[in-house]
């Protein structure tokens, strides 16, 4: 039974590149919080964040055709970070050039202090960012599954209950719990292709 067609085996990026608006929307939904977070980390104001945010996604959209994801996990995220970093730098440069800058000197100082505000993440940052994107992915797909399946999945994945325990609690067959877990994780991985290893070797 195929509950996901070829569409999901193509990555979101491929689909967005072929002008699939849904895929683009999903990309923005998934990575928007990350972009916002990066902007905040360098201490930008809300108005400026809004500009950089839009400019960044404009740039992603413009250069999507040229972006060739490397085999490495997270290559899209790295690319996105590069773009955002550039846009942030552009922004501060513009502020600098303005004779009477909006907020002038503090912004200049910020730029000086944060030479590369988004230098490569440490591992801790990266896993936190992953969690952020995974959470967005869960929001994205939740409506595709029944409440019961979703609950079963969360009890397995979040709480670590066993299929048999959950089955009793939800009054379903244990296999239904396993299947819910499988389907939802599979779907999540499809959405999160960029962040997840293609095959998970944790148990092997």
């Amino acid at each position: 039974m195929s509950s996901q067609s070829d569409a999901t085996s193509l990555s979101l990026l491929q689909r967005a590149r072929s002008n699939d608006q849904d895929a683009w929307d999903q990309i923005v939904h998934l990575y928007g919080p990350l972009v916002q977070r990066w902007c905040k980390r360098v201490g930008m104001r809300e108005d400026d964040i809004a500009d950089v945010f839009q400019e960044s996604f404009h740039a992603v959209s413009n250069h999507l055709d040229g972006f060739k994801p490397a085999k490495a996990v997270g290559s899209f995220r790295s690319w996105l970070r590069t773009i955002v970093r550039t846009k942030i730098a552009d922004h501060f440069r513009k502020v600098n050039e303005q004779p009477v800058g909006r907020g002038g000197s503090t912004d200049q100082m910020r730029l000086a202090n944060v030479a590369d505000p988004l230098a490569d993440d440490c591992a801790e940052d990266e896993s936190e960012e992953n969690a952020l994107v995974v959470q967005r992915a869960m929001e994205l797909i939740e409506s595709e599954f029944s409440a019961k399946n979703w609950q079963a999945f969360k009890l397995v994945a979040l709480e670590g209950y066993s299929a048999v325990e959950i089955a009793q609690q939800l009054n379903v067959q244990p296999q239904a719990v396993r299947q819910a877990n499988y389907r939802i994780r599979r779907r999540l991985r499809a959405v999160l292709q960029d962040l997840m290893e293609p095959t998970d070797s944790d148990f092997e």
Partner: peptide, 25 residues
């Protein structure tokens, strides 16, 4: 069945990300 249930309780990379608390925006 038992083996699968055992495995599914442990966290793989995906589940680790799911379990990691994210500060609400």
């Amino acid at each position: 069945q038992r083996q699968i249930d055992d495995m599914s309780r442990r966290a793989d990379s995906l589940v680790a990300a799911i379990r990691r608390p994210v500060a609400p925006a």
